[in-house]
Simulated scan of single mutants.
Amino acid sequence: MIDRRGVIASGMAVAVAGAARAAGHGGAEDARLAGLALPPGFQGMLALGRAGHIVAARPVGMADIEAGRPVSAGTRFRWGSATKWLVSTAVLRLHEQGRLSLDAPVARYLPDLRPDDATPVLVRHLLSNTSGIPDLLSRQVGQEPELRTSRAPALAIARRFAGAPLSFAPGTGWDYAALNWVIVAALTQQVTGDPLVATVQRLVLDPLRLRSTGFAQADQPDMPALAAAYGVVDPPERKMAPVPPFLAASGTVAGSAADAVGAAHGIFHGALLNAASRQELTRIHWADQDYALGGRVRVIGGTRYAWEAGKVGGYRALIAHRLDRSETIVVFNTTDLDQAVISALAEDIARA
Protein backbone atom coordinates (compact mmCIF):
# COMPACT_ATOMS: atom_id res chain seq x y z
CA MET A 1 0.00 0.00 0.00
CA ILE A 2 1.41 3.42 -0.98
CA ASP A 3 1.89 5.96 1.80
CA ARG A 4 0.40 9.03 0.11
CA ARG A 5 1.72 11.40 2.77
CA GLY A 6 5.24 10.06 2.34
CA VAL A 7 5.01 10.46 -1.43
CA ILE A 8 3.84 14.07 -1.06
CA ALA A 9 6.57 14.89 1.45
CA SER A 10 9.23 13.25 -0.73
CA GLY A 11 8.02 15.26 -3.69
CA MET A 12 8.29 18.47 -1.71
CA ALA A 13 11.82 17.55 -0.64
CA VAL A 14 12.81 16.99 -4.26
CA ALA A 15 11.28 20.35 -5.25
CA VAL A 16 13.05 22.29 -2.50
CA ALA A 17 16.37 20.55 -3.12
CA GLY A 18 15.97 21.18 -6.83
CA ALA A 19 15.54 24.89 -6.17
CA ALA A 20 18.73 24.86 -4.12
CA ARG A 21 20.63 23.11 -6.90
CA ALA A 22 19.29 25.63 -9.40
CA ALA A 23 20.91 28.31 -7.26
CA GLY A 24 24.24 26.53 -7.56
CA HIS A 25 24.11 24.39 -4.42
CA GLY A 26 22.86 20.95 -3.40
CA GLY A 27 24.72 17.69 -3.86
CA ALA A 28 26.73 17.10 -0.69
CA GLU A 29 24.39 19.29 1.36
CA ASP A 30 21.34 17.34 0.14
CA ALA A 31 23.06 14.07 1.04
CA ARG A 32 23.95 15.45 4.45
CA LEU A 33 20.28 15.91 5.28
CA ALA A 34 18.89 12.92 3.38
CA GLY A 35 21.21 10.54 5.21
CA LEU A 36 20.15 11.74 8.65
CA ALA A 37 18.17 9.15 10.62
CA LEU A 38 15.06 10.78 12.05
CA PRO A 39 13.08 9.70 15.13
CA PRO A 40 9.84 7.80 14.42
CA GLY A 41 6.95 10.16 13.72
CA PHE A 42 9.14 13.18 13.06
CA GLN A 43 7.35 15.98 11.20
CA GLY A 44 8.86 19.32 10.33
CA MET A 45 11.77 20.77 8.40
CA LEU A 46 15.53 20.34 8.27
CA ALA A 47 17.55 22.95 6.38
CA LEU A 48 21.11 24.04 5.74
CA GLY A 49 21.94 27.62 4.87
CA ARG A 50 24.97 29.48 3.64
CA ALA A 51 25.38 33.27 3.52
CA GLY A 52 21.70 33.74 4.28
CA HIS A 53 20.27 31.34 1.67
CA ILE A 54 19.05 27.76 1.94
CA VAL A 55 21.33 25.34 0.10
CA ALA A 56 19.52 22.14 1.09
CA ALA A 57 16.22 21.34 2.75
CA ARG A 58 14.33 18.25 3.83
CA PRO A 59 10.63 18.82 4.55
CA VAL A 60 9.14 15.86 6.42
CA GLY A 61 5.51 14.84 6.92
CA MET A 62 2.44 16.99 7.25
CA ALA A 63 2.08 20.63 8.23
CA ASP A 64 -1.59 19.94 8.97
CA ILE A 65 -2.68 16.31 9.25
CA GLU A 66 -6.39 17.07 9.34
CA ALA A 67 -6.25 19.29 6.26
CA GLY A 68 -3.88 16.96 4.39
CA ARG A 69 -1.35 19.78 3.93
CA PRO A 70 2.29 18.62 3.65
CA VAL A 71 5.28 20.51 4.98
CA SER A 72 6.73 22.71 2.24
CA ALA A 73 9.35 25.42 1.80
CA GLY A 74 6.76 28.04 2.74
CA THR A 75 5.54 26.36 5.93
CA ARG A 76 5.95 28.48 9.04
CA PHE A 77 6.81 27.08 12.44
CA ARG A 78 6.75 28.55 15.93
CA TRP A 79 10.25 29.33 17.16
CA GLY A 80 9.47 29.31 20.89
CA SER A 81 12.29 30.73 22.96
CA ALA A 82 14.38 31.46 19.86
CA THR A 83 12.17 34.57 19.92
CA LYS A 84 14.46 35.87 22.68
CA TRP A 85 17.32 36.05 20.18
CA LEU A 86 15.38 38.43 17.92
CA VAL A 87 14.23 40.50 20.90
CA SER A 88 17.80 40.77 22.22
CA THR A 89 18.85 41.95 18.77
CA ALA A 90 16.18 44.67 18.87
CA VAL A 91 17.39 45.76 22.33
CA LEU A 92 20.97 45.91 21.06
CA ARG A 93 19.84 48.15 18.21
CA LEU A 94 18.17 50.48 20.73
CA HIS A 95 21.45 50.40 22.68
CA GLU A 96 23.38 51.39 19.53
CA GLN A 97 20.94 54.26 18.97
CA GLY A 98 21.53 55.57 22.49
CA ARG A 99 17.92 55.02 23.51
CA LEU A 100 18.79 52.61 26.30
CA SER A 101 21.89 51.09 27.87
CA LEU A 102 22.55 47.43 28.63
CA ASP A 103 24.27 48.52 31.83
CA ALA A 104 21.52 50.83 33.03
CA PRO A 105 19.31 49.80 35.95
CA VAL A 106 15.87 48.63 34.88
CA ALA A 107 14.51 51.24 37.28
CA ARG A 108 15.80 54.00 34.97
CA TYR A 109 13.15 53.00 32.44
CA LEU A 110 10.54 51.51 34.78
CA PRO A 111 10.98 53.62 37.95
CA ASP A 112 8.00 52.17 39.80
CA LEU A 113 8.94 48.53 39.22
CA ARG A 114 11.90 47.78 41.51
CA PRO A 115 13.04 51.07 43.08
CA ASP A 116 14.41 49.63 46.34
CA ASP A 117 16.87 46.94 45.22
CA ALA A 118 20.19 47.38 47.00
CA THR A 119 21.95 45.85 43.98
CA PRO A 120 20.19 47.11 40.88
CA VAL A 121 18.95 44.77 38.17
CA LEU A 122 20.51 45.88 34.88
CA VAL A 123 19.01 45.49 31.43
CA ARG A 124 21.66 42.90 30.52
CA HIS A 125 20.63 40.84 33.55
CA LEU A 126 17.16 40.44 32.05
CA LEU A 127 18.52 39.40 28.64
CA SER A 128 20.87 36.83 30.19
CA ASN A 129 18.36 35.44 32.73
CA THR A 130 20.67 36.45 35.60
CA SER A 131 18.39 39.09 37.17
CA GLY A 132 17.50 37.17 40.32
CA ILE A 133 13.84 38.25 39.96
CA PRO A 134 11.79 35.21 41.00
CA ASP A 135 9.42 33.97 38.32
CA LEU A 136 6.19 34.37 40.27
CA LEU A 137 4.32 34.63 36.96
CA SER A 138 5.08 31.06 35.87
CA ARG A 139 4.25 29.77 39.36
CA GLN A 140 0.87 31.51 39.27
CA VAL A 141 -0.25 30.18 35.88
CA GLY A 142 -1.17 26.79 37.35
CA GLN A 143 -3.43 28.42 39.94
CA GLU A 144 -4.78 31.08 37.57
CA PRO A 145 -5.19 29.42 34.14
CA GLU A 146 -6.96 32.47 32.75
CA LEU A 147 -3.52 34.08 32.54
CA ARG A 148 -2.92 31.89 29.48
CA THR A 149 -5.53 33.84 27.53
CA SER A 150 -5.08 37.24 29.16
CA ARG A 151 -4.52 40.30 26.99
CA ALA A 152 -3.10 42.34 29.85
CA PRO A 153 -0.20 44.56 28.73
CA ALA A 154 3.32 43.50 29.66
CA LEU A 155 3.75 46.47 32.01
CA ALA A 156 0.69 45.46 34.05
CA ILE A 157 1.97 41.89 34.38
CA ALA A 158 5.44 43.12 35.32
CA ARG A 159 4.04 45.42 37.99
CA ARG A 160 1.97 42.59 39.43
CA PHE A 161 4.66 39.92 39.62
CA ALA A 162 8.08 41.61 39.74
CA GLY A 163 7.99 43.06 43.25
CA ALA A 164 9.15 40.05 45.30
CA PRO A 165 12.60 40.01 46.97
CA LEU A 166 15.37 38.83 44.67
CA SER A 167 16.29 35.14 44.75
CA PHE A 168 19.96 36.03 44.29
CA ALA A 169 22.04 39.13 43.65
CA PRO A 170 21.87 40.13 39.98
CA GLY A 171 24.58 38.47 37.95
CA THR A 172 25.37 35.80 40.58
CA GLY A 173 22.86 33.15 39.52
CA TRP A 174 20.77 31.99 36.59
CA ASP A 175 17.04 31.30 36.26
CA TYR A 176 15.25 30.75 32.95
CA ALA A 177 12.39 33.01 33.97
CA ALA A 178 9.60 34.11 31.62
CA LEU A 179 9.09 37.16 33.83
CA ASN A 180 12.48 38.57 32.77
CA TRP A 181 11.13 38.82 29.24
CA VAL A 182 7.81 40.34 30.24
CA ILE A 183 9.88 43.10 31.83
CA VAL A 184 11.93 43.44 28.63
CA ALA A 185 8.70 43.93 26.66
CA ALA A 186 7.47 46.54 29.14
CA LEU A 187 10.82 48.32 29.13
CA THR A 188 11.09 48.55 25.34
CA GLN A 189 7.56 49.91 25.12
CA GLN A 190 8.42 52.60 27.65
CA VAL A 191 11.52 53.53 25.64
CA THR A 192 9.99 53.48 22.15
CA GLY A 193 6.31 54.19 22.79
CA ASP A 194 5.45 51.13 20.68
CA PRO A 195 4.49 47.58 21.63
CA LEU A 196 7.34 45.09 21.46
CA VAL A 197 5.86 43.46 18.35
CA ALA A 198 6.12 46.73 16.43
CA THR A 199 9.64 47.42 17.72
CA VAL A 200 10.97 44.02 16.63
CA GLN A 201 9.23 44.41 13.28
CA ARG A 202 10.82 47.81 12.68
CA LEU A 203 14.30 47.08 14.01
CA VAL A 204 14.82 43.44 13.01
CA LEU A 205 12.25 41.82 10.73
CA ASP A 206 11.87 44.65 8.21
CA PRO A 207 15.60 45.47 7.80
CA LEU A 208 16.37 41.76 7.29
CA ARG A 209 13.40 41.36 4.92
CA LEU A 210 11.96 38.47 6.90
CA ARG A 211 8.63 38.49 5.10
CA SER A 212 7.47 35.11 6.41
CA THR A 213 8.15 35.85 10.07
CA GLY A 214 5.87 37.48 12.62
CA PHE A 215 4.29 37.08 16.03
CA ALA A 216 1.73 34.28 16.31
CA GLN A 217 -0.32 35.42 19.30
CA ALA A 218 -3.86 36.34 20.21
CA ASP A 219 -3.72 40.04 19.33
CA GLN A 220 -2.16 39.48 15.88
CA PRO A 221 -3.78 38.37 12.60
CA ASP A 222 -3.86 34.64 11.87
CA MET A 223 -0.61 33.52 10.25
CA PRO A 224 -1.00 31.83 6.87
CA ALA A 225 0.83 28.53 6.29
CA LEU A 226 1.52 28.01 10.02
CA ALA A 227 2.10 24.33 10.74
CA ALA A 228 -0.04 22.63 13.34
CA ALA A 229 1.71 20.92 16.26
CA TYR A 230 0.84 17.59 17.81
CA GLY A 231 1.45 15.70 21.02
CA VAL A 232 3.12 12.29 21.17
CA VAL A 233 -0.08 10.22 21.06
CA ASP A 234 -1.67 7.83 18.58
CA PRO A 235 -3.68 9.04 16.81
CA PRO A 236 -1.97 12.46 17.03
CA GLU A 237 -3.83 15.26 18.78
CA ARG A 238 -3.11 18.94 18.32
CA LYS A 239 -0.95 20.54 20.99
CA MET A 240 -1.17 24.26 20.38
CA ALA A 241 -1.70 26.07 23.66
CA PRO A 242 -2.45 29.80 23.39
CA VAL A 243 0.38 32.19 24.26
CA PRO A 244 -0.73 35.55 25.69
CA PRO A 245 0.63 38.77 24.15
CA PHE A 246 2.50 39.75 27.32
CA LEU A 247 4.82 36.79 26.61
CA ALA A 248 5.70 38.12 23.14
CA ALA A 249 9.37 38.59 24.05
CA SER A 250 9.84 35.06 25.29
CA GLY A 251 8.22 32.85 22.70
CA THR A 252 5.60 33.89 20.12
CA VAL A 253 7.61 34.40 16.91
CA ALA A 254 6.89 32.05 14.00
CA GLY A 255 8.47 31.91 10.57
CA SER A 256 9.86 29.80 7.76
CA ALA A 257 13.17 27.96 7.59
CA ALA A 258 14.33 30.40 4.90
CA ASP A 259 13.69 33.32 7.25
CA ALA A 260 15.54 31.56 10.07
CA VAL A 261 18.59 31.25 7.80
CA GLY A 262 18.23 34.86 6.67
CA ALA A 263 17.93 36.09 10.25
CA ALA A 264 21.05 34.24 11.38
CA HIS A 265 23.15 35.57 8.53
CA GLY A 266 21.83 39.12 8.87
CA ILE A 267 22.37 39.28 12.62
CA PHE A 268 25.77 37.60 12.89
CA HIS A 269 27.35 38.43 9.54
CA GLY A 270 25.38 41.33 8.10
CA ALA A 271 25.24 45.04 8.78
CA LEU A 272 22.21 45.01 11.11
CA LEU A 273 24.39 45.14 14.24
CA ASN A 274 27.78 46.72 14.69
CA ALA A 275 30.76 44.61 15.75
CA ALA A 276 30.44 45.54 19.42
CA SER A 277 26.79 44.47 19.50
CA ARG A 278 27.53 41.18 17.77
CA GLN A 279 30.17 40.52 20.40
CA GLU A 280 27.67 41.34 23.17
CA LEU A 281 25.13 38.96 21.65
CA THR A 282 27.57 36.05 21.81
CA ARG A 283 29.40 36.79 25.08
CA ILE A 284 28.51 34.10 27.59
CA HIS A 285 27.10 35.44 30.86
CA TRP A 286 26.41 32.14 32.60
CA ALA A 287 28.91 29.42 31.72
CA ASP A 288 27.05 26.44 33.19
CA GLN A 289 24.27 27.06 30.66
CA ASP A 290 26.40 28.44 27.80
CA TYR A 291 23.99 31.37 27.99
CA ALA A 292 24.73 34.72 26.37
CA LEU A 293 21.99 37.28 25.58
CA GLY A 294 18.73 35.67 24.50
CA GLY A 295 20.37 32.38 23.58
CA ARG A 296 23.31 30.06 23.98
CA VAL A 297 26.73 29.77 22.39
CA ARG A 298 27.94 26.18 22.07
CA VAL A 299 31.11 24.57 20.77
CA ILE A 300 30.51 21.64 18.41
CA GLY A 301 33.57 19.86 17.04
CA GLY A 302 35.77 22.78 18.06
CA THR A 303 33.56 25.33 16.30
CA ARG A 304 31.45 28.00 18.00
CA TYR A 305 27.74 28.15 17.15
CA ALA A 306 25.04 30.56 18.22
CA TRP A 307 22.50 28.06 19.50
CA GLU A 308 18.95 29.42 19.44
CA ALA A 309 16.49 26.80 20.74
CA GLY A 310 12.83 26.93 21.62
CA LYS A 311 9.70 25.00 22.42
CA VAL A 312 6.06 25.95 22.81
CA GLY A 313 3.20 23.48 22.84
CA GLY A 314 4.17 20.65 20.50
CA TYR A 315 6.59 22.84 18.51
CA ARG A 316 10.36 22.49 18.74
CA ALA A 317 12.87 24.79 17.05
CA LEU A 318 16.64 24.98 16.81
CA ILE A 319 18.58 27.52 14.77
CA ALA A 320 22.34 26.88 15.00
CA HIS A 321 24.61 29.38 13.27
CA ARG A 322 28.33 28.85 12.79
CA LEU A 323 30.06 32.01 13.95
CA ASP A 324 33.36 31.78 12.08
CA ARG A 325 31.57 31.64 8.72
CA SER A 326 27.96 32.08 7.72
CA GLU A 327 26.49 28.57 7.85
CA THR A 328 23.15 27.84 9.46
CA ILE A 329 21.41 24.65 10.56
CA VAL A 330 17.64 24.71 11.09
CA VAL A 331 15.61 21.95 12.75
CA PHE A 332 11.89 22.57 13.13
CA ASN A 333 9.65 19.87 14.61
CA THR A 334 5.90 19.71 15.28
CA THR A 335 5.57 16.41 17.14
CA ASP A 336 6.58 17.31 20.69
CA LEU A 337 9.98 15.62 20.65
CA ASP A 338 12.35 16.03 23.57
CA GLN A 339 14.57 19.07 23.10
CA ALA A 340 17.63 16.87 23.57
CA VAL A 341 16.62 14.90 20.47
CA ILE A 342 16.39 18.11 18.44
CA SER A 343 19.82 19.23 19.67
CA ALA A 344 21.30 15.85 18.78
CA LEU A 345 19.96 16.13 15.22
CA ALA A 346 21.56 19.58 14.82
CA GLU A 347 24.85 18.29 16.24
CA ASP A 348 24.82 15.36 13.81
CA ILE A 349 24.33 17.76 10.90
CA ALA A 350 27.11 20.03 12.18
CA ARG A 351 29.55 17.14 12.47
CA ALA A 352 28.62 15.49 9.15
Results as ranks from 00 to 15, higher is better:
Thr252Tyr: 07
Val55Asn: 00
Gln339Arg: 14
Pro195Ala: 13
Asp135Met: 01
Gly11Gln: 01
Leu203Asn: 02
Pro111Arg: 03
Val197Glu: 15
Ala248Met: 10
Arg148Asn: 07
Ile329Val: 15
Arg296His: 03
Gln143Asn: 13
Thr328Ile: 11
Gly18Val: 07
Trp307Ser: 07
Asn274Gly: 15
Gly74Arg: 05
Arg209Ile: 11
Ile267Thr: 04
Ala31Glu: 13
Lys311Leu: 04
Glu308Thr: 15
Trp181Tyr: 14
Trp79Gly: 00
Gly98Thr: 06
Thr335Asn: 11
Pro195Tyr: 09
Ala344Ile: 04
Gln43Arg: 15
Val71Ala: 01
Asp206Gln: 14
Val7Gln: 11
Ala258Ile: 01
Gly266Ala: 13
Arg211Tyr: 05
Ile267Arg: 08
His95Ile: 01
Ser256Trp: 00
Gln140Tyr: 12
Gly26Arg: 12
Val243His: 14
Asp259Glu: 07
Ala63Met: 00
Gly26Ala: 08
His95Cys: 10
Leu196Asp: 00
Glu66Pro: 00
Leu48Cys: 10
Pro145Thr: 01
Phe42Asp: 09
Ala9Gly: 10
Trp85Phe: 14
Leu94Ser: 03
Gln201Glu: 15
Asp259Arg: 02
Thr83Lys: 06
Ser326Asp: 15
Ala158Phe: 10
Phe332Trp: 06
Gly193Phe: 04
Tyr176Ile: 08
His269Lys: 12
Arg32Ser: 14
Ala19Val: 06
Glu237Leu: 13
Gly98Trp: 04
Thr172Tyr: 09
Gly132Val: 04
Asp103Leu: 13
Trp286His: 15
Leu208Val: 02
Leu281Phe: 09
Val71Glu: 01
Ile54Asn: 00
Pro170Tyr: 00
Thr192Gln: 08
Arg160Asn: 08
Met12Arg: 12
Val141Gln: 12
Thr192Tyr: 08
Arg21Asn: 00
Val71Lys: 00
Leu166Asp: 03
Val312Pro: 04
Leu345Ala: 11
Glu29Ser: 15
Leu226Ala: 02
Thr334Tyr: 05
Ser256Val: 00
Leu281Asp: 07
Val200Met: 10
